[in-house]
Design a protein around this nucleic acid. Sequence first.
DNA 1: ACCTAGATCTTGATCCATTCAAGAAAATGG
DNA 2: CCATTTTCTTGAATGGATCAAGATCTAGGT
Lengths: 152, 152
Amino acid sequence: MGHASNVSTLTDYEQLLRSSDLRVTRPRVAVLSAVHEHPHADTDSIIGAVRQSLAEVSHQAVYDVLRALTAAGLVRRIQPSGSVARYESRVGDNHHHVICRSCGSIADVDCAVGDAPCLHASNDHGYAIDEAEVIYWGTCPNCSSNPHAHTH
Amino acid sequence: MGHASNVSTLTDYEQLLRSSDLRVTRPRVAVLSAVHEHPHADTDSIIGAVRQSLAEVSHQAVYDVLRALTAAGLVRRIQPSGSVARYESRVGDNHHHVICRSCGSIADVDCAVGDAPCLHASNDHGYAIDEAEVIYWGTCPNCSSNPHAHTH
DNA sequence: ACCTAGATCTTGATCCATTCAAGAAAATGG
DNA sequence: CCATTTTCTTGAATGGATCAAGATCTAGGT
């Protein structure tokens, strides 16, 4: 009695992992979940979030998992100048980011030109370009109105 | 006899520094020169280049100078994902970069749309955008033809 | 269900780019 | 030439990320 829950509790995250041929482990489910729930979080924040549901996960495991998930395309890693690595679960749509120079907040920006665009450099120097990464730098609404309230 | 050379040897780099209200020191001239001569070089390469003309410069001095030059707008700092900081002397023209995923080589790309463009995000979320940084990722001609010759 | 092979995680150390700190040296303006 | 302020030297520390070895767990086959 009760072992039927093994089947009924298959989460979407487990499905995602399996469909990428990744073994399902508790650290992996927890990290994948954390990235979904905390877009643009850095590794340290992800470790913190993961440990709320799975207390004793090593930081090394989180690093390993993030690498595996990134390689599998389940998460995307971004690393703006001067920042540590950050991760997001929105993948495959070629979107970009706006970053506040003052507080570091990040927001998503749909690609301005279409779906898989931005791939046209004025002179590609013979490079075979497969991705155009755009980072818009500026000041967020909050920092614009409260110029001295740094959360950075 | 001979001290007239103090005047005649004012280099362009000295002028650049003075016009930015920066004191002229040998480390600064050497670093500025190194960045001009080695576009996209990282700090370590710049330290090496600087020490060819000025043997005993501390790495800390180079870090400090690079920071000062960047703040003054005399050089530009770029830091692609997974790379250390790199510097270039081409500033003020809103150009972008293509980077080879295989060997890490970097080439300049003029802005595709015009002069100070690219500043139009599809939805800026209220951010006041002042710069659009574009990095094109791909494979350089050399790595395309010699797929296994990593210099990275 | 159980076992095995191979992947993944834990533990603990290490790397290295960058920054911090304090005092010595140098540059500018008077 | 001096005084003030900046910049450089020296040496240590920081922190994100990686390396390494062995224990643990997952998945697939029996």
